[in-house]
């Protein structure tokens, strides 16, 4: 089964994944009409700034066992095993924020959602775009990502690719391979700017 894989070193922080995510979790499903919906659709993937302003697409890891699921008071959080997705039942959620206290990645938000009972504030997070997947599409964040920071792959294949990259870089003769030289340059510039500002 394919999963969304995050390659943080390739993220430029453009936040297009956030827009695409919000649009695909809106009532109308397209960005142009989603912006005038109420409640306004919000993203379930969150691009945060790292220490040196480098981008980082932060989304639910669908942990197993999931700490949010174990902490959920009313039992609203459950795992859909066929898609390996941790989901929140908006009808049962009581917005107690116990999951906020449990999530080690801080990916859960609390607001009214177009796909939940009207005007009810609930916990909202990534659902792996299972509705899109059901229609044969890939998750919206991956589809829109221009830099390859988000990919949709078989976990085993992705692991193998990463292992090979590491293996190539640990040969005594090899200079550590830079898998994303353009991004490294960008992040180095950002970091330098940040450090210079700090010294001021």
């Amino acid at each position: 089964m394919k999963q969304v894989i995050v390659h943080p070193e390739r993220c430029v922080g453009c936040m297009q994944c956030m827009l695409a995510c919000a649009a695909s979790h809106s009532k109308t499903g397209t960005l142009i009409s989603a912006i005038s919906e109420s409640p306004r659709p919000r993203p379930r993937i969150h691009v945060g700034a790292g220490l040196y302003e480098e981008g980082f697409p932060n989304r639910c890891r669908h942990c197993d066992p999931a700490p949010c699921q174990m902490a959920c008071l009313p039992g609203a959080i459950y795992r859909q095993t066929i898609t390996n997705t941790v989901l929140i039942n908006p009808d049962i959620c009581i917005n107690c924020a116990s999951c906020a206290m449990a999530c080690p990645y801080g990916v859960i938000r609390y607001h009214a959602d177009p796909l939940a009972p009207a005007a009810k504030t609930i916990a909202v997070k990534c659902d792996n775009c299972i509705a899109r997947q059901h229609r044969g599409q890939i998750p919206a964040c991956v589809e829109v990502c221009k830099t390859g920071a988000l990919t949709f792959e078989e976990m085993d294949a992705a692991m193998k690719k990463k292992t090979d990259q590491v293996a190539r870089s640990i040969c005594a003769e090899a200079v550590p391979a830079d898998n994303a030289p353009g991004f490294s340059l960008l992040n180095t510039v950002k970091r330098a700017e940040k450090e210079i500002n700090l010294l001021r």
């Binding site: 943080p8 070193e9 969150h46 945060g48 700034a49 790292g50 220490l51 040196y52 480098e54 980082f56 932060n58 080690p104 990645y105 801080g106 490294s184 992040n187």
Partner: peptide
């Protein structure tokens, strides 16, 4: 207010 998990991983993502 901008704190997020990536700040803790800054050292890992070259």
């Amino acid at each position: 207010p901008g704190f997020n998990v990536s700040r803790l991983m800054g050292r890992l993502t070259r």
